[in-house]
Design a protein around this nucleic acid. Sequence first.
DNA 1: CCTGAAAATATATCGCC
DNA 2: GGCGATATATTTTCAGG
Lengths: 144, 144
Amino acid sequence: MQSPIDDIDRKIMKLLQHQARMPISQISQMVAMSQPAVKERIMKLEEKGFITGYRTEFNLQRLERGTTSFILMKTEQCQALVDFCEQAPEVTDLHRISGEFNYLIKVKTASVEELADFQDSIAGMGPSKSLISLKNLLENRVVL
Amino acid sequence: MQSPIDDIDRKIMKLLQHQARMPISQISQMVAMSQPAVKERIMKLEEKGFITGYRTEFNLQRLERGTTSFILMKTEQCQALVDFCEQAPEVTDLHRISGEFNYLIKVKTASVEELADFQDSIAGMGPSKSLISLKNLLENRVVL
DNA sequence: CCTGAAAATATATCGCC
DNA sequence: GGCGATATATTTTCAGG
């Protein structure tokens, strides 16, 4: 089940990475292989779990999520924090981490004021430290 | 240019969000609107910048990127750090941040050993602190 | 695993409301 | 903005190597 992916698979993955809606016919030309063959390779990449999904990306500035921040949190109410973050739309990432703080939360709010509101809402769970992103130089990049 | 998106646009965006390859014909049925109308709405969402792209997601475990870590960095060699991170495939995110540390780097490596290697490679630029993700509870989530 | 060709779907382009 | 109808393109299926 640890299937070896070859160069053509890799090429297909690179083509799809930033253009998930690219038609198979077009990929077929680029990798010089018939459409059914490309289709089958894509299906196998999905079945084997290399490809986990196709996402549409939105401009978060336009969706009132232009301010990115990271909150380091130290809490003993783990389940409560997880539950809270899961239902909070501002939270995009939640990691259990090593070190003094035990959770790292990534938050996208409309403004720093909203970040303050969010911080207030979790203040009861323990001490936190927030890091505001002044500039997103790279975000969610995957180099294949 | 600050075009108002309506409920149907929002519905289309939600449908596409996690299934970017969904055919327009199918979306058309779900929102009870003709295919040309749906197509036009999607094009406008793209033109107006609400939709910024279509991405394929990969299983990072299978691509030797199963270990997620965050590195807080304090450096004065800003441009050097940015240049280095841009060409380092392990780096998925790079943020200029407020606070004592001035950069936050998100890194995906095959193992913690590789994280150590990465840390060594930037050690010359200034003091750093690394936070290893023990569990990815949420990652790159966008709630529309 | 791949190909080629035919059948089934999906998309693009109309003219018109 | 949106609809329906049609022409074009794409995808799926399948027999055969």
